[in-house]
Each structure stands twice: as structure tokens, then as C-alpha cells.
Design a protein around this nucleic acid. Structure first.
Lengths: 194, 194
DNA sequence: CTATCATATATCAGTTCGATATAGTCAATC
DNA sequence: GATTGACTATATCGAACTGATATATGATAG
């Protein structure tokens, strides 16, 4: 799924600036299962404007560089929905340096192994908190995209969030139950070797 | 983690060709949490050879294009282990078109939503089977990297595999328990609207 | 008998990331 | 009262990487 399509999707929740779109992928609704950087979002928005799929209004008022608020056109909305129907979703891909490194646990000091596992757990703990769309810690001004016009939580988002949380919980549970066992095993191997 | 480091890691398990390294990331040991394509592996191996971190032996015997079997040098091995100690692991990143699309479940036909969920489940079912390093379905000639010189399963790999399986299981369980609920919710919203 | 798949290397266009530049506001810290 | 860092906001660019393609051949399946 290319950044153009992702931008259209981001704008399905209402108007936004390029910066706000990035935030949706950085901290917001989509952050846990899609990635897009500013370096790809801005060119994508330019292209989409040329193709008539989005329009923008410039707001100059604030002394700062002009703020371009983008919005889907009808054509853009139709194109996005058509893409959803026609696109065969790509394979999921998960990328984790920590898991890759843990693969070599035997070659590392045990303290590093433990630190990596703890880091992994901490990140998933944090993620679990961030995922919850009901979580009102977040500043209200942030466009959440998870709620529809009536402020109701969209069922699709709810499902996806629940799934994410289930995965986090499973990860944390596994670590609780297996971390010590791994460390013990590594220790006993080290002593056997020497 | 750049491809050079990934290649060094791949060669920690013993000698391999560029093609075999790709397989480790495509189907093999690392496939579920790291990605590397041929287009990046070959240049990386060339660079590593220049830097003296790997060496290769050309085997021409088979009528086919020369087969270059790469191997870590001592310097390469040391460099990799040093990298493990010094590198701050990057954030995990998960990318899923299916979850992104499901976010817009309300705007899609219910059949598509159901198909996407089923596809998601099927992929995780398959992944769960593939992950198991004990799984001997795989052709024996494949270098698994999950076993050490003595044929024993490496504890780090075992831990990572278990974690992956726990995540798959949690995903499948969540889908079993929540799929119908989502579909019902979507149906009731559609009828309410019309 | 002809696809298609698997092995194996190599190259390249296009996409994307990550860093950087610019620039103003605001809060905090020193 | 001054500097530092964080946030908003757009834009650009080099470096890295993916995915596709080319080449070559043997094996296997239809």
C-alpha cells in the first residue's frame, strides 16, 4: 500500500495538514500497523492534489509558514473506496531488531539478553496503553480518526485496537512466563562451557 | 539494522550463499521479524568482502553460474558481536495492510470485512506452523540457523519462536472470539442507516 | 513438450526513510 | 533575562532498500 493510498485513508476521517497526517502514523490511529514519513507524505499530497483527489486551503493567518489543510474530494473518496475493494492486501511484515538480536543470546553477555527482553516488554507495555482508543490521556485536540462524526468509536477501529492489545498482552504474558527460564538455561550453558 | 549487519548475523550460523541468506529472511529463521531482499544482500556481501568481514569461495562445478559460498572472517565475527553490544535496537515496526483496511470496515461491504479477517487468520495459522523450529516438515537441506553445531536448538531462537507462536495464538483466539461480534455490529449499523 | 519452479548471481528504477533546513511559538530551566 | 528544548509546519535530498527484471540451467509437473 503506497503512501498516496495511506494519505487518502488518513483524510477519510476529515481534513488535516501534512503534519497531522504524519502524527496519525507516528503516534495516532495508524501508528501501530502502518508507517509513513514526512519525506513521503508531502510529495504524495502534492501528487494527489495534481490528480484532483484532494484539495487544500491555505491558512496564512498565524505569521508562520502557510498551513495547508487538505481535504478529500468526492473523486478522492471514491478512489480510496475502490482501492479498498480492488487491492489484494500485501503480506504483513514485522520487523524487530530486538528479536533478531535475541536469536544470538548464546553469544552475548546474559545481562544484555535480560536488558533486551526488559526493553521489549517495556515497549509492549507502553504500546498497550497507547492503543486503547478510549484512553483519554491524549490531548483532545488530536484527531483520533477512530471516532466517527457522532463521536462514536468506529467498530473497525475497535476491533483492530482490541487485536493489538491482545497481541501485546500475549507478548507480556509470554515474557513473564519464560524470561527466567531462558536466563537460567543460558547460565547453565555458560558454566558447562567453561 | 542495516543489511550488512543482518548478513553477518545470517553467517553466524555457518557458511551460506547470497541466495541462502535471502531464504533465511524469506522462509527461514529470520523471516518473521526481519526483511532483506536480494537487491540489498548482494551489494552488502560485496561491501563486506571489501571490508574483510567475510570471504567467499567460488564453486564452479555445476555448469551453472559460479556459486559463491560466503563465510565470516574472525574480524567479521568480532564486528558482529561488537555491533550487538553497541547497537541500540531500533523500534519494532509492524506493517499490515489488512489491519489498515479493517479500520474502514464501516465503509466496505460486510463480505469484504469478513474476507479480510479470514485472510488475516489464515496467514497467522500458517505462520504459527512455520515458526516451530522443531517442525521437521521443512526439507532437511535447509540451513535452519536455529540449531547450533551440535544440532541442539539454540535457546535464544527457542524463546523468540515461542514468543512468535504466542502472538499468533493470541491473534487467532481474538479473532475466534470477536469476529462475529464485529460483523453483527456492522450489520446492525447498516440497517439503521438505511 | 512446455510451463513453472528452484537454484544462483546481478542490476536498476522507483519508492521510501531519515536527516536536515527553515522558521516561528511557547514553556521551562538556569 | 537568556538559552535550551519541544512543538507546529512545510520542504528537500541523499542514502538505503524493495521489487522487478535479466540471465542461465536443471528438475519437476502437467
Amino acid at each position: 500500500m503506497d503512501v498516496r493510498t495511506l494519505c487518502l485513508g488518513a483524510l477519510m476521517g476529515g481534513e488535516a495538514t501534512g503534519y497531522e497526517i504524519r502524527k496519525m502514523f507516528e503516534d495516532g490511529t495508524f501508528s501501530h500497523f502502518q508507517i509513513a514519513s514526512l519525506g513521503s507524505i508531502y510529495p504524495a499530497l502534492t501528487k494527489l492534489t495534481q490528480d484532483g483527489l484532494v484539495t487544500f486551503v491555505e491558512h496564512e493567518q498565524e505569521n508562520r509558514p502557510d498551513k495547508k489543510i487538505y481535504q478529500l474530494t468526492q473523486e478522492g473518496r471514491r478512489t480510496f473506496l475502490r482501492t479498498l475493494l480492488q487491492t489484494r492486501p500485501a503480506e504483513d511484515r514485522y520487523r524487530s531488531d530486538i528479536l533478531f538480536m535475541l536469536t544470538f543470546a548464546e553469544e552475548m553477555p546474559i545481562e544484555l539478553t535480560e536488558a533486551l527482553i526488559d526493553e521489549f516488554a517495556a515497549r509492549h507495555e507502553l504500546m498497550s496503553q497507547q492503543i486503547d482508543p478510549e484512553n483519554t490521556d491524549k490531548p483532545a485536540h488530536q484527531k483520533s480518526n477512530a471516532h466517527d462524526e457522532n463521536g462514536e468509536l468506529k467498530p473497525g477501529c475497535c476491533f483492530v485496537a482490541g487485536l493489538g492489545q491482545a497481541m501485546c498482552d500475549a507478548t507480556l504474558k509470554f515474557i513473564r512466563e519464560n524470561k527466567q527460564g531462558l536466563l537460567d538455561e543460558l547460565k547453565s550453558r555458560k558454566t558447562k562451557k567453561s
